[in-house]
C-alpha cells in the first residue's frame, strides 16, 4: 500500500506558505462540536491540529476526533502527548491513525497532569517528545516497531514537533530546535508569537544554522480576544512572551472593540512575518474562536489555499 503524502506535506514541499489551525475535542461523547468547529475552518486551512487532552483536561481522544474531522474531508494533524501513553500505546495509536488515513502527527510532552482534572493521576513519560518523533520516523522509514519486528504496512506519517522561540534557557533555543530536527521532525509549529522582534531574531539564527532547509517552520499565531487575555498570557502562561506594548495597544482600545483589534493585530503580524526568510507557514490557534480564522486567513492574504 503506497500512501500519498499528506496535503500539509505537499503544500510545504511546493513552497507555499502553509496554514494550519487547531481544534480541541469536546468534553463529551457528542462529536457535533468538533465537526462544527472543523466546518468553520474547512476551506481556509491545509490541516487542522486536534489537541490531545490539552492542559491535562480529560476530553474525547485526539484520534477519535481526528477521524471525525477526516470524514468531513479535512486533513487532521494528530497531536500526541507522551504523558498518558507508553511506547506500546503510542505505536499502536500511530498505526490506528494511519489506518484511518491520518497522515500528520505532532509530538508533544503534554502539560503536567496537575493542571488538569486528574491531579492524582500517574503520568507515563516512558519516552519524551523527541523520542516520539524518532519512534514514528523509525516506524515509517525503517518499517519496524521499536522492538525490531517488521511492520507489515508501515504508517505514512508527516512528523512534527513544537518549538518555543522564547523558551528558557536562552542559550539553548537554537540547539534545542537543532536537536528536534536531528530527532527527525519534518515540521515545527511554534508557540504563540507576540514578540515579533525576538521571533525574527530567532528565525535569523535558525537560518544562519541552516535549519530552515531541514525543517518547515510554521509560526504560531493566536489572536487576543481582549486586553485581559493579553495580561493573562503575559503573566500566567509559562514560556509566553507578550510585549507591554501589545498589552497597551489593547488596553487603550475601547472594550467592545478589543476583540476586533486583536484580530487586526494578528493579521498585521502575519503580514509582517510572511516576509521572513525561512518561515514556511502559519499555525493559527484561535482558542475557542475558530469562526475568526477565515477572516484572519483572508485578510492576511493567505486565501485561497492552493489546490494540490
Amino acid at each position: 500500500m503506497k500512501t500519498e503524502k499528506s496535503r500539509l506535506e505537499k503544500v510545504l514541499e511546493k513552497n507555499f506558505l502553509a496554514v494550519t489551525s487547531e481544534c480541541g475535542p469536546p468534553r463529551g461523547s457528542d462529536p457535533s462540536e468538533i465537526i462544527e468547529k472543523a466546518e468553520l475552518l474547512k476551506d481556509h486551512v491545509d490541516a487542522i491540529n486536534i489537541t490531545d487532552n490539552q492542559t491535562a483536561m480529560t476530553r474525547m481522544s485526539s484520534l477519535a476526533a481526528c477521524i471525525h474531522v477526516k470524514q468531513l474531508g479535512l486533513e487532521p494533524v494528530l497531536q500526541m502527548v507522551t504523558r498518558d501513553r507508553n511506547r506500546i500505546a503510542l505505536q499502536s495509536d500511530v498505526l490506528g491513525a494511519a489506518s484511518h488515513g491520518i497522515k500528520n502527527v505532532l509530538c508533544l510532552s503534554g502539560d503536567h497532569q496537575s493542571f488538569g482534572d486528574c491531579k492524582s493521576g500517574q503520568n507515563v513519560h516512558d519516552i519524551d517528545s523527541m523520542q516520539l518523533v524518532q519512534t514514528i520516523r523509525y516506524m515509517r522509514d525503517e518499517g519496524k516497531f521499536l522492538g525490531g519486528d517488521d511492520i507489515k504496512v508501515p504508517p505514512q506519517m508527516f512528523v512534527g514537533a513544537a518549538a518555543n522561540p522564547f523558551a528558557d534557557p536562552y542559550e539553548i533555543r537554537i540547539p534545542r530546535l537543532a536537536k528536534k530536527v536531528a530527532s527527525g521532525a519534518e515540521f515545527i509549529q511554534t508557540q504563540c508569537i507576540y514578540n515579533l522582534d525576538k521571533f525574527e531574531d530567532w528565525m535569523k539564527r535558525v537560518v544562519d544554522r541552516g535549519l530552515h532547509e531541514k525543517v518547515h517552520i510554521l509560526a504560531g499565531m493566536t489572536p487576543m480576544k481582549s486586553a485581559g487575555m493579553a495580561k493573562y498570557m503575559k503573566n500566567r502562561v509559562p514560556g509566553m512572551d507578550v510585549p507591554d506594548e501589545l498589552v497597551k495597544r489593547l488596553s487603550d482600545t475601547p472594550k467592545e472593540e478589543q476583540a476586533q483589534k486583536g484580530i487586526d493585530i494578528c493579521i498585521e503580524d502575519i503580514q509582517r512575518l510572511k516576509e521572513i526568510d525561512g518561515l514556511h507557514g502559519f499555525h493559527i490557534m484561535a482558542i475557542e474562536w475558530e469562526e475568526k480564522v477565515p477572516e484572519i486567513v483572508e485578510k492576511a492574504g493567505l486565501y485561497p489555499r492552493p489546490s494540490i
Binding site: 510532552s109 502539560d111 503536567h112 513519560h125 519516552i127 519524551d128 517528545s129 523527541m130 523520542q131 513544537a162 518555543n164 523558551a167 528558557d168 534557557p169 539553548i172 534545542r176 536537536k179 530527532s183 508557540q191 509559562p238 514560556g239
Partner: peptide, 9 residues
Amino acid sequence: VMNGPCGGS
C-alpha cells in the same frame, strides 16, 4: 524528559 527542557520551563 530525557531531551529537555520541555516547553514549560
